Amino acid sequence: MRPIVITLSFFLVVLQYRLWIGEGSFAQHQSVREQIAERVQDNRTLQARNDALAAKVIALQQGRSEGLYGLPAVEEYARQELGMIRKDETFFYMPD
């Protein structure tokens, strides 16, 4: 009877070690859950950014941007976002 108790005690200690400290432990499980939550939040932020960019692309393809239509919408975007000017325009830099 004594060898059975010792063997069962040994297995209990090994299983408890794995449960609390080893691979697949509660601490590791919690760490993975936190990483998943962070990645989900990052994905939501990136998805919102992608949606905004897709809407801007569609607006420029359809020629609508901030009340402007057609080529003026594309020109306005090129001026504001890309810093471009026409051939016949003069660029003035005014520091704040």
Rank of each mutant, 00 (worst) to 15 (best):
34 E>V: 01
5 V>F: 11
39 R>N: 10
3 P>Q: 11
58 I>A: 04
33 R>T: 06
90 T>P: 01
81 E>R: 02
76 E>C: 05
83 G>L: 10
18 R>W: 15
47 Q>I: 05
44 R>T: 03
87 K>W: 12
31 S>K: 06
47 Q>C: 04
40 V>E: 11
41 Q>R: 03
52 A>Y: 01
34 E>Y: 02
69 Y>G: 04
57 V>S: 02
57 V>F: 05
60 L>W: 06
25 S>D: 06
62 Q>K: 06
43 N>H: 04
26 F>K: 03
45 T>K: 04
77 Y>K: 02
15 L>R: 12
35 Q>S: 09
72 P>I: 07
57 V>P: 00
13 V>N: 00
26 F>C: 01
72 P>N: 05
78 A>P: 00
15 L>Q: 13
10 F>D: 11
30 Q>L: 05
23 E>T: 15
38 E>K: 05
6 I>G: 08
45 T>P: 00
82 L>R: 03
7 T>W: 10
62 Q>H: 00
86 R>A: 14
7 T>I: 14
76 E>L: 07
45 T>I: 06
41 Q>M: 04
33 R>V: 10
46 L>H: 03
75 E>M: 09
53 L>H: 01
51 D>Y: 06
56 K>G: 06
1 M>G: 15
61 Q>P: 00
33 R>C: 09
13 V>S: 10
18 R>F: 15
16 Q>F: 11
3 P>Y: 12
76 E>M: 05
87 K>R: 15
24 G>E: 13
62 Q>S: 05
80 Q>S: 06
88 D>Y: 11
83 G>H: 08
75 E>F: 06
6 I>M: 14
28 Q>F: 01
39 R>K: 15
48 A>M: 08
18 R>C: 15
26 F>E: 06
20 W>V: 14
8 L>F: 13
7 T>H: 13
71 L>V: 11
15 L>C: 10
80 Q>G: 03
24 G>N: 09
50 N>I: 09
11 F>L: 14
32 V>E: 07
28 Q>K: 04
46 L>K: 07
25 S>M: 05
88 D>N: 14
69 Y>E: 09
92 F>P: 00
27 A>M: 02
76 E>F: 12
56 K>Y: 02
4 I>T: 14
87 K>S: 15
63 G>M: 02
9 S>F: 15
78 A>V: 07
51 D>T: 05
63 G>N: 01
66 E>T: 02
40 V>M: 03
68 L>R: 00
67 G>T: 11
22 G>F: 14
82 L>D: 01
56 K>L: 15
26 F>H: 08
86 R>C: 09
70 G>M: 11
40 V>Q: 13
44 R>K: 07
1 M>W: 07
32 V>L: 12
86 R>N: 10
35 Q>F: 08
11 F>N: 02
87 K>F: 13
89 E>T: 12
24 G>V: 07
93 Y>R: 12
32 V>I: 09
47 Q>Y: 03
33 R>W: 07
62 Q>W: 01
29 H>Q: 13
64 R>T: 10
53 L>M: 10
4 I>H: 14
79 R>S: 06
89 E>Q: 15
34 E>T: 05
9 S>Y: 13
89 E>C: 13
10 F>G: 05
73 A>I: 03
64 R>A: 04
7 T>E: 14
51 D>L: 08
21 I>N: 10
26 F>Y: 11
54 A>T: 03
41 Q>P: 00
54 A>N: 06
72 P>Y: 08
72 P>V: 04
57 V>N: 02
34 E>Q: 06
39 R>L: 13
6 I>C: 11
